Computed example of a mutant assay.
Amino acid sequence: MTQYVRDIMTGDPVTVEPLTSVTEVARIMRDRDLGAVLVTEGDRLRGLVTDRDLVVRSLAEGGDPEQTTVAGACSDAMVTVRSDEELGHVVELMREHAVRRVPVVDDGHPVGIVSLGDLAMERDPESALGGISVARPNP
Rank of each mutant, 00 (worst) to 15 (best):
M1Y: 10
T2N: 12
D7Y: 10
D7V: 03
T10E: 07
D12G: 09
T15D: 00
T20K: 07
T23P: 04
A26E: 02
A26C: 05
I28C: 07
R32S: 13
L34P: 00
L34T: 01
G35Q: 10
G35D: 07
V37P: 00
V37K: 00
V39K: 01
G42C: 03
G42M: 01
D43L: 10
L45T: 00
L45W: 01
R46W: 13
L48R: 04
L48M: 13
T50Q: 02
V55L: 15
R57M: 14
S58R: 15
L59V: 14
G62C: 10
G62D: 08
G63D: 11
E66H: 13
T68Q: 15
T68L: 13
V70A: 03
S75N: 08
S75I: 05
D76H: 07
V79A: 06
V81S: 04
S83E: 05
D84Q: 08
D84C: 07
E85Y: 12
V90F: 06
V91I: 11
E92M: 09
E92H: 09
L93K: 08
M94E: 03
H97N: 10
H97T: 05
A98K: 14
A98Y: 06
V99P: 01
V99R: 04
V102R: 04
P103K: 05
V104N: 00
G108L: 05
G112R: 06
V114H: 05
V114E: 02
S115V: 05
S115A: 11
D118P: 01
A120Q: 06
E122A: 13
D124Y: 06
P125S: 08
E126M: 08
L129E: 11
L129I: 09
G131P: 03
G131W: 07
S133F: 10
V134P: 07
V134R: 15
V134C: 07
R136E: 15
N138Y: 15
N138R: 15
P139E: 15
